[in-house]
Design a protein around this nucleic acid. Structure first.
Lengths: 82, 82
DNA sequence: AGCCCATGTCCTAAAATCCCCACATCGCCC
DNA sequence: GGGCGATGTGGGGATTTTAGGACATGGGCT
């Protein structure tokens, strides 16, 4: 009876602004949402989302990624799939 | 021959600015670093790190977490332990 | 070709963030 | 008690980021 749902999709490892953007885009399209729809649902501007998915290289993101790198910590994103 | 290092420390699930801060603090102290040391290594201000670890509730973090929540994606931090 | 729809990109004002100072607190050790 | 190292916290100003509009591009469809 398959204890684990076993959806078997591998997590996204986040180590650059770009990889973060790609992950977001992946999950958004997989959810069948447009940038407009997602932006409205979370109260953001669409152009912001576009830039984020394109891997906008902000200093904020760089800062936290630098911290994680220095500490030897890896960040991953994956489907919560309850 | 122990294929996997099997260090078996459970990952941190990140769902609030606070949980993010706690994770950072955990890994920093585990690495035996002071805020000063870490801040200098990554070229940041110490007070910034302090506030980050205290779970500073920034809009930026909120935005990202809102996106992930809406997409049903979970973010985790764990030791890279190569 | 023409029409949508989704997305990328440029711009500017407005808003949020971060650096950098100062000072307070808390343990711990002498 | 006094000193010291580590951290919390406040404020101000400079820097960075975001919102929001406008416009271009590109694909798919008729």
């Amino acid at each position: 009876m398959h204890t684990s749902g076993h959806s078997s999709e591998q997590p996204f490892r986040i180590y650059t602004p770009s990889s973060f953007g790609q992950a977001i885009r992946h999950y958004r399209t997989q959810a069948g949402l447009t940038q407009d729809e997602l932006a409205e649902r979370v109260g953001l501007d669409r152009t912001y989302l576009s830039r984020l998915e394109s891997g906008a290289d902000t200093q904020q993101l760089r800062r936290i990624l630098a911290i994680l790198r220095e500490l030897g910590v890896k960040a991953t994103l994956e489907r919560a799939d309850w």
